[in-house]
Design a protein around this nucleic acid. Structure first.
Length: 259
DNA sequence: ATGACTAATACCATTAGA
């Protein structure tokens, strides 16, 4: 089976591209971020016609996440239990595969704007809460994948300019320490299980010909638990949608699992 | 480089993204 993540930067605008992409890439599950719409406006019908069930957690204007899946999702959790949050950033659900259940956690991590800002403080608290909840979630669901827009470039090689951007948002020690803490829960970055091209990124700024110059960051990730890791047979970034007319600034990341 | 794009808002300028 294949699972994927894609920050679409407005599902209303990007729905045709999502449908096109799913037609060409019929993944079993897709985590979407930055829906920027309320649940009442979620395009269930169009996705159903494309062969996908969906569970969504939206809000007006900003944020919003959803899980699309070939089979119905169950035991849906919205946001981090016990962590009060006005922003719709997490949706988790269980998918039943022939080989057993797979727990999928799809998250739109906080951006954080810049170190020293209130938003950065919010990001740190959110990351800690996610970590603490995931520890319990993984104990309950050994076969777990955490996918989404992490808004963290884990290592220097995940940035087009690690020197110039050192210490800036997505590159700070604090953010990277939180990413490492997730790995210490037993999660593995599926992308790095395999040989990858240099300068592999998943986001490029809309400005200054960022994509054309490959001035990007790898901030969209698929992390798998120890129980899932042996089943991962491939993981790649699909740059193709970034070449669309009116693209999202992010592009999908896809992992293949022998499930 | 206080910049550049893109999307949403009950709006024609501001906020947010990363």
């Amino acid at each position: 089976m294949q699972i994927a993540t894609w920050n679409v930067n407005s599902l209303s605008v990007r729905l045709p591209q999502v449908l096109d992409w799913l037609a060409a890439n019929p993944v079993d599950a897709l985590g979407l971020q930055e829906l920027k719409l309320v649940d009442e406006k979620f395009p269930h019908e169009a996705l159903q016609e494309a062969g996908y069930h969906a569970v969504s957690f939206g809000q007006k204007t900003y944020n919003g996440v959803a899980i699309l899946s070939r089979t119905p999702a169950r035991d849906v959790v919205r946001n981090i239990p016990g962590h009060g949050d006005e922003q719709a950033r997490v949706i988790a659900a269980t998918l039943d595969t022939p080989a057993g259940p797979l727990r999928l956690v799809n998250a739109y991590f906080v951006n954080g704007q810049a170190p020293g800002t209130d938003k950065f403080t919010y990001k740190m608290g959110w990351l800690q809460a996610l970590h603490d909840w995931l520890r319990a979630e993984m104990a309950q669901h050994p076969r777990l994948a955490l996918v989404g827009d992490f808004n963290v470039a884990p290592e220097d090689r995940d940035s087009f300019d690690p020197v110039g951007l050192a210490g800036t948002i997505h590159h700070t020690q604090e953010e990277r320490a939180h990413f490492q803490a997730l790995l210490q829960l037993g999660l593995t970055d599926a992308f790095r299980l395999f040989e990858q091209p240099d300068k592999s990124f998943s986001w490029w700024d809309y400005r200054m010909l960022g994509f054309q110059k490959n001035r990007g960051l790898r901030i969209d990730h698929i992390l798998v638990s120890q129980a899932l890791r042996p089943y991962v047979t491939a993981c790649h970034v699909d740059r193709a949608p970034r070449k669309n007319k009116q693209p999202s600034d992010h592009t999908p990341v896809v992992a293949t699992l022998a499930l």
